[in-house]
Design a protein around this nucleic acid. Structure first.
Length: 270
DNA sequence: AGAACCACCTGGCAGC
DNA sequence: TGCTGCCAGGTGGTTC
């Protein structure tokens, strides 16, 4: 469950269970994730209290007494709060036992996710070059246009580039561009100011509405406390090739951009 | 310098 | 059934 709305939904649902809890024990069953789990994670985390859970793009950041625990879901990662009796399954790679008897468990079949301890967030290379945060101040048409200046890259790829915009992935790039009426293949550097205004607003609206709906739940089920989201029912174009466009009724088109599926309405998006 | 492609994994599904 | 090939919400590094 990995784009911004899904990560934000996870953050909100974990917060009441995890903030204020002390980490009692750590168990790493599989350290081969996107990057190897920080060596000595158990010694690093044991005894520390979680003071807050923040999000930057698609990263979850657990603020501790010392440093942060950084979690990324990759394509198939998830966290759940389990009762102590729950047996670990095949892809349950990391457990944090908390002082109320529950376990915060990281599950990730494809192992594209990450679990890292970070001393100083500001200096960490994974966070240093992250782009504009769509739901915070500064996410404006002007800022986007400035970043895109001179780029011939398709606007959809631009929006999915984490160094430009944080947290927008394949689903929400397609959905936001549909809402804005902009063709995904348009060169980012050639969008007019008026179109950037529409794109910026569409990104904010799309992400906000998705968060309200609890995100999109596709092929995976959300374990633990997390309930599945329902925003997939409101996808206008994503995964809907050949089905009628909600605006004009024409068939939704499908194409491939730098290896990723793109869905759009050829009539409504110019 | 900028944009496309590859690699990293497992699982589910369609088609034979 | 079981096999094969293809597809999947990410992203850093490599190649062109």
């Amino acid at each position: 469950m990995p784009e911004l709305p899904e990560v934000e939904t996870a953050r909100r649902s974990l917060e009441p269970h995890v903030v204020g809890r002390r980490i009692i024990r750590v168990r790493v069953r599989e350290r081969r994730l996107r990057w190897p789990v920080t060596p000595g994670l158990a010694a690093r985390l044991s005894g520390l209290t979680v003071h807050a859970i923040r999000r930057r793009g698609k990263y979850l950041l657990f603020e501790l007494d010392r440093g942060h625990l950084l979690v990324h879901y990759g394509m198939t990662g998830s966290l759940s709060v389990c009762p102590p009796t729950r047996r670990a399954g095949k892809h349950d790679h990391v457990d944090l036992a908390l002082d109320d008897g529950t376990t915060l468990r990281f599950h990730d079949p494809r192992r594209f996710g990450a679990v890292l301890w970070v001393a100083e967030l500001g200096r960490h290379p994974l966070l240093a070059s992250i782009g504009l945060e769509p739901l915070e101040g500064g996410f404006t048409a002007q800022a986007l246009a400035r970043l895109a200046r001179g780029k011939r890259q398709p606007v959809k790829s631009f929006l999915m580039d984490g160094r430009m915009v944080a947290g927008v992935g394949n689903i929400y790039a397609s959905e936001a561009l549909f809402a804005a009426g902009v063709r995904p293949s348009t060169a980012a550097g050639r969008l007019s100011r008026a179109r950037w205004e529409r794109v910026a607003r569409s990104i904010v609206d799309t992400l906000s509405q998705a968060i309200e709906a609890g995100g999109s739940t596709l092929r995976d089920f959300v374990g633990g406390e997390g309930k599945p989201g329902s925003y997939q029912e409101r996808h206008a174009v994503y995964g809907r090739e050949g089905q009628p466009c909600p605006k004009c009724g024409g068939p939704i088109g499908h194409t491939r951009q730098s290896g990723r599926s793109t869905f759009y309405c050829p009539r409504c998006q110019r």
